[in-house]
Write a protein that binds this DNA or RNA. Structure first.
Length: 576
DNA sequence: GCCGTTTTCGGCCCGACTGTTTTCAGTCG
């Protein structure tokens, strides 16, 4: 049942296969083998189930991209802490060469070349070789390469190809909407859309892509690079430009011919994996897909369309919502007309997690109520931290909520709480008090570094408590700041399903916890999801849409999300 | 190494850009 805590985590496994692929690439191995390892690494990294355990049980091959060879290597690594394949390559190649290969602009071929010809086996060696102008002695390399290498190595984060940091969706979305509006205002602009990871509502983005059609492309591009927010123009051509903004975004605009707008929007929305799978499938239908159109390889005929849905239709698919375009089964579903009818923001009726000045919130209860009502919420749960509601305070808050309900018009205010799940799994509010509340959210706020079995045990104990309605931010991660704690998520799901406890998708921009793969696994395990904001300020109530996007990326329908129901309907669904 | 509405073998997306080149390899998305 429960995963063996000694087994490696998915993140550790994924790293091994990424390293194996890198070393094999340096060794000149077959490119398709490499991409097989990289694909497997990506699937392992994002899997909600503990893949090492699956492999030991002989079930890892159920994951697409993992066959018997890779499963065997996972078992080997789980049992011995290493892989013979890795050891063999480490003997053959200096591991520092992997860092060299990751320097932007270099690659495996160049890294191998500088190693064999100049003995470069680390970033330090590389710097010296560039400084002493020895790189230009090699075929295909010149002074420009040395310049680029030195520039890349001078950056503070040396080594791994960091580039600009990934920006949270919560920061990206407002900029996306403003820029679309600013471009749309220009007289030469006909159509404009966001594309790329922002359009797919990925939790973070490295850059923000836009595409547009225009009666005068150079004029629209000029307007773009002249926007007040632009700090630096990185590239500026007649149909394409890249800029950075004062607040640290990298924006990319392409102006495209209107007749192929649909093809280009499809192409630039991605993801890469989605497009590769789409094109591979198309090849079997004797069709070649690119951003310029769909070419029939026999007749040579080129299909283009202004309409993205028509592009999918030509290939035999229903239009696929961008949030699903990750090659996680959406193509098969779209071919069969079996795509889920994804939940929408407008479906959500209530917000079941927020704080007020009764604990660490910055707005009063009345202010939160007014803001929630303005957003059209029909009910809200006030979930202040239990540790701040000791003694009479709980009663006083109850009175304030009762009074607010008296005044309230069209919104119901629920008495809730957010309890801490302590190290021993107990909660920081007595059961008889919890039983008197409308809604109980239980979360872990401490001891994140504990071993897997301890953290799993804490959650299982909380799930067993009849008064716990929902687990808040169940994996504890903070994007760019804190890894999720080590958890046997399968065991948590099984217990949540068994006890009828909900799990939260917390819509705070840096939490977005559960992640999509976890949310999807939850639904498949029969667990329902609450999407809530955990707002501490009035404007944070608007973050609900971020949670809904995350839910959509997890393939969730309206029925899968608890709080698309009226409060009486939610009440019936609860375990108590 | 993976995988199967042509396949258990023989395929495996498509194009742009860059730097270094007279026709292209390597890298990137």
């Amino acid at each position: 049942m429960a995963a063996d805590p000694a087994l490696p985590t998915n993140a550790v496994l994924a790293e091994q296969f990424e390293l194996l692929a890198d070393l094999l690439e340096l060794d000149g191995a077959d490119a398709f083998r490499l991409s097989a390892y990289r694909r497997a690494a990506a699937r392992i990294r994002e899997s909600a189930a503990p893949v090492a355990q699956l492999a030991v049980d002989g079930r890892a091959t159920e994951i697409p991209g993992i066959g018997s060879t890779i499963e065997g290597k996972i078992v080997e690594f789980s049992e011995t802490g290493d892989m013979r394949a890795l050891a063999k390559l480490r003997d053959k190649l200096p591991t520092g060469l992997v860092d060299v290969m990751h320097v932007p602009g270099l690659g495996p071929k160049t890294a191998r070349l500088v190693w064999t010809e100049l003995g470069v086996s680390s970033l330090d060696d590389l710097r010296v070789a560039a400084e002493t102008e020895r790189l230009r002695e090699l075929p295909g390399l010149g002074a420009k390469t040395e310049e680029r290498v030195l520039a890349a190595l001078a950056k503070p984060a040396k080594g791994k190809s960091e580039g600009p940091p990934r920006v949270l969706l919560g920061k990206v979305l407002p900029v996306v909407r403003e820029v679309v509006a600013e471009l749309g205002e220009h007289p030469a602009c006909e159509r404009v859309s966001e594309a790329g990871s922002a359009r797919r509502r990925c939790e973070t983005s490295r850059d923000v892509d836009f595409i547009a059609t225009s009666t005068d492309a150079p004029a629209l591009i000029a307007h773009f690079v002249g926007l007040p927010r632009v700090a630096e123009v990185v590239a500026h051509g007649p149909t394409k430009a890249t800029v950075t903004t004062y607040d640290g975004f990298r924006l990319d605009l392409r102006v495209v011919p209107p007749e192929a707008y649909g093809n280009l929007l499809q192409h630039f929305t991605g993801s890469k994996d989605h497009n590769v799978a789409l094109r591979e499938a198309a090849v079997k239908q004797k069709l070649s897909v690119s951003e310029y159109g769909i070419q029939d390889t026999e007749s040579g005929e080129l299909f283009t369309s202004e309409d993205e849905a028509a592009v999918y239709e030509r290939l035999g698919y229903a239009w696929i919502p961008p949030e699903l375009r990750e090659n996680r089964g959406e193509l098969e579903a779209a071919r069969k007309g079996a795509l889920p009818d994804l939940v929408e923001l407008a479906d959500v009726k209530g917000d079941l997690h927020m704080h007020t000045t009764w604990s660490d919130g910055r707005a009063s209860l009345d202010e939160m109520v007014a803001a929630a009502r303005a957003l059209g919420r029909k009910y809200i749960a006030i979930c202040d931290h239990a540790r701040r509601l000791k003694g009479e305070l709980l009663e006083q808050q109850a009175a304030e909520i009762a009074a607010a309900n008296e005044r309230a018009d069209g919104i119901q205010i629920l008495r809730g709480v957010e309890v801490d799940i302590r190290r021993d799994g107990s909660l920081d509010m007595e059961d008889d008090l919890l039983a008197g509340l409308d809604w109980v959210m239980a979360s872990i706020h401490s001891g994140f570094d504990a071993p897997r079995d301890e953290l799993t045990g804490r959650l299982l104990t909380a799930l067993d408590n009849l008064n716990v309605d929902c687990i808040g931010h169940p994996t504890g991660r903070k994007i760019n700041r804190r890894e999720p704690y080590d958890l046997d998520f399968d065991a948590v799901l099984a217990r949540a399903a068994e006890t009828g406890t909900f799990l939260e998708i917390n819509a705070q921009p840096d939490r977005l916890d559960l992640r999509p793969s976890h949310a999807r696994a939850a639904i498949e395990a029969g667990v329902k999801i609450v999407v809530s904001t955990d707002a501490h300020r009035t404007h944070e109530l608007e973050n609900l849409e971020l949670g809904v996007f995350q839910a959509r990326r997890g393939w969730l329908t309206k029925a899968d999300v608890v709080n698309t129901r009226t409060w009486p309907q939610v009440r019936k669904l609860m375990k108590r």
